[in-house]
Simulated assay, not measured.
Amino acid sequence: MPRPEPQHQRAHGRAELGFAQSPRGTVLRHLYHAAPLRVLFPRSEPDDLPLAALVNVGGGLAGGDSLDVAVSLAGGTSASLTTPAAEKLYRSLGDATRIATRLELAPGATLEWLPQETILFDGARLERRMEARLGAGARLLAAEMLVLGRPARGERLTQGSLFDGWRLRRGDRLHWADAVALESGLAPLAARFGFGGAEATALLLLAASDAEALAGRDLLRAAGHDATLPRPGLMLARWIGGAVMVREALCAAIPALRSGVLGLPPRLPRLWTS
Score class of each variant (00 low, 15 high):
Ala106Met: 11
Gly59Arg: 13
Ala142Ile: 03
Met245Leu: 15
Arg98Pro: 09
Met1His: 15
Ala190Asp: 12
Leu214Ala: 15
Glu155His: 02
Asn56Arg: 08
Lys88Met: 07
Arg91Leu: 11
Arg14His: 14
Trp272Asp: 01
Gly263Gln: 07
Val69Thr: 11
Arg10Gln: 13
Trp176Val: 11
Ala249Phe: 04
Ala124Pro: 06
Ser22Ile: 10
Leu234Met: 12
Val246Thr: 11
Gly194Ile: 00
Leu89Cys: 07
Pro269Leu: 00
Val71Trp: 10
Ala227Lys: 13
Leu174Lys: 05
Leu49Trp: 10
Glu45Pro: 10
Leu114Gly: 03
Arg156Ile: 02
Arg156Lys: 14
Leu141Met: 06
Gly196Asn: 01
Phe195Glu: 02
Arg167Lys: 13
Gly108Ile: 05
Thr118Ala: 14
Trp113Gln: 03
Ala100Val: 11
Leu189Arg: 01
Leu186His: 04
Leu51Ser: 07
Met245Gly: 15
Leu186Glu: 06
Gly25Tyr: 14
Ala11Gln: 13
Ala249Glu: 12
Trp239Leu: 14
His175Leu: 15
Leu257Ser: 11
Arg247Cys: 08
Ala213Tyr: 07
Leu219Asp: 03
Ala86His: 09
Ala52Asn: 00
Leu250Tyr: 04
Gly260Asp: 09
Glu117Pro: 03
Ala74Arg: 11
Thr118Val: 12
Arg167Ala: 13
Phe163Met: 13
Thr110Ser: 09
Trp272Tyr: 04
Ser161Lys: 05
Pro107Cys: 10
Gly94Tyr: 02
Gly94Pro: 01
Leu37Ser: 00
Val55Gly: 01
Pro50Met: 09
Ala100Gln: 09
Gly224Lys: 08
Phe163Gln: 09
Met235His: 11
Ala237Glu: 04
Leu189Lys: 01
Gly137Cys: 12
Leu49Gly: 03
Leu114Trp: 00
Val55Ala: 00
Ala52Phe: 00
Gly108Trp: 02
Asp48Phe: 01
Trp113Ile: 00
Glu127Ala: 11
Ala79Phe: 05
Leu148Pro: 04
Ala124His: 08
Leu214Phe: 10
Ala86Tyr: 06
Asp210Pro: 14
Leu262Val: 06
Thr201Trp: 11
Gly154Ser: 07
Pro230Ser: 06
Gln116Leu: 04
Ala202Ser: 09
Arg10His: 14
Ala124Asp: 07
Arg238Trp: 10
Ala62Gln: 09
Arg102Ile: 08
Gly171Tyr: 08
Glu131Asn: 14
Arg173Trp: 06
Arg247Asn: 05
Glu5Ile: 15
Asp218Thr: 12
Arg98Val: 15
Thr273Asp: 07
Thr97Gly: 10
Arg24Gln: 14
Leu234Val: 15
Val244Met: 10
Ala215Ser: 13
Ser72Asn: 07
Arg3Tyr: 15
Gly58Gln: 08
Pro265Val: 09
Leu205Asp: 04
Thr97Tyr: 03
Pro151Trp: 01
Asp172Tyr: 08
Gln159Leu: 14
Gly137Ala: 10
Trp239Gln: 12
Leu264Asp: 13
Leu182Tyr: 01
Ala249Trp: 09
Val246Glu: 02
Ser66Asn: 04
Ala70Val: 10
